[in-house]
Design a protein around this nucleic acid. Structure first.
Lengths: 194, 194
DNA sequence: ACTGTTGGATGATAGATAACATCCTAAGAG
DNA sequence: CTCTTAGGATGTTATCTATCATCCAACAGT
């Protein structure tokens, strides 16, 4: 059943979109090609007309997931001040909502550990993604370039670690403690901005 | 080939020890029962004489892995000051060595994200493990109980996030930036100790 | 006899291919 | 420019092989 060029592109898009979510929900090894294609409304056989391998799909879906992070960064709107943008970003990142819905959240927290043992291509996408986040944060901080990057990296680390730890523990009290202490630190870091 | 009672206990111990390492190296879904038993010097068939299920094994191995973290915390020796103990812990945690050898490192950074979607039993072990680390750090900080726990939670978060992010990116420069900025922050946090 | 180990069996599921049906697209004829 | 047609792109179903967790019967040391 050959489809039109647009239909094909749309299917590709749907696979990547659904995949970017499922990848964050279930991890790389936890997501099967069959489940992925079913989520996209297709059957598993057609997968390899869109991707050379599962790994190639993971690369594309990872890019899409980091693109979602970019959207999350712009939640405060482009007209807001740097401080407001940072606050909106870290507030959402460190929210219970983000912890509860990994599928729409940060790929680093969702499957960064798995990506560390993935192919070089996947790691390259993560490298670019992490670099992008650090740069975006650094642009919104004050001070000399080097210090801004250092503080941006620290901010990313607290956020990622807090969400990973908060998701791993079951107790609500511990989750709150971790998230709120991280929120406090990100607020401090973002305090001195232009 | 029946073995003595001690040999049986020793085998159990070997499975758990080898498993605690492999679990951190490959993740829960990335580790097969057959590989695990082979690493322990046994064949796959006997696994279920030691554990009711793979999940039960993951629980025990997770406890063992957190036990390894406790050993890592005592690297500075019990005679050192609180500040020295904290510094030794965070210095190792945020070292290239720890990033390069997940098998002997922190289970939260290694498979915390996977644990978040694991069974309630596994999550309970993580809860206890994380609580233990936070408590250990908090005991070595100064100030009122509540603030100590907050700072301890923040410290754990930066460390976990830094290692997860550092492992996920390939570039040495980015890894260094992340680890060193986290080291700087843990040093600040540990500065005011008794 | 009991119990832990072995090696193999089992059924499920994984990623990846193949044969086949469909029908879009581009090239050439008029 | 329009119509036709050959060829290839795209999706479906069925299937392959490997591997997974789990279980079991036979063996062997206590």
């Amino acid at each position: 059943m050959r489809m039109s060029r647009e239909a094909m592109a749309q299917h590709h898009q749907e696979i990547v979109t659904a995949g970017a979510r499922l990848l964050r929900e279930r991890g790389i090894e936890g997501l099967s090609v069959a489940d992925l294609m079913q989520a996209a409304g297709l059957t598993h056989g057609g997968f390899y007309r869109h991707f050379a391998s599962k790994d190639a799909f993971v690369c594309e879906a990872t890019d899409a997931a980091f693109g979602g992070v970019a959207g999350m960064r712009n939640a405060a709107g482009p007209d807001s001040s740097a401080g407001e943008q940072l606050a909106a970003f870290s507030d959402f990142y460190l929210s219970q909502a983000h912890c509860g819905e990994p599928g729409i959240g940060c790929p680093i927290a969702a499957y960064g550990a798995e990506a560390a043992r993935a192919s070089g291509e996947v790691r390259a996408r993560f490298n670019a993604g992490v670099e992008g986040v650090v740069e975006w944060i650094a642009e919104r901080l004050d001070g000399p370039e080097v210090q801004r990057r250092r503080r941006a990296a620290e901010m990313l680390a607290v956020m990622v670690g807090a969400v990973v730890a908060a998701r791993a523990v079951g107790s609500a009290g511990l989750t709150d403690l971790i998230l709120s202490s991280a929120r406090q630190r990100t607020a401090e870091l973002a305090a001195a901005v232009h």
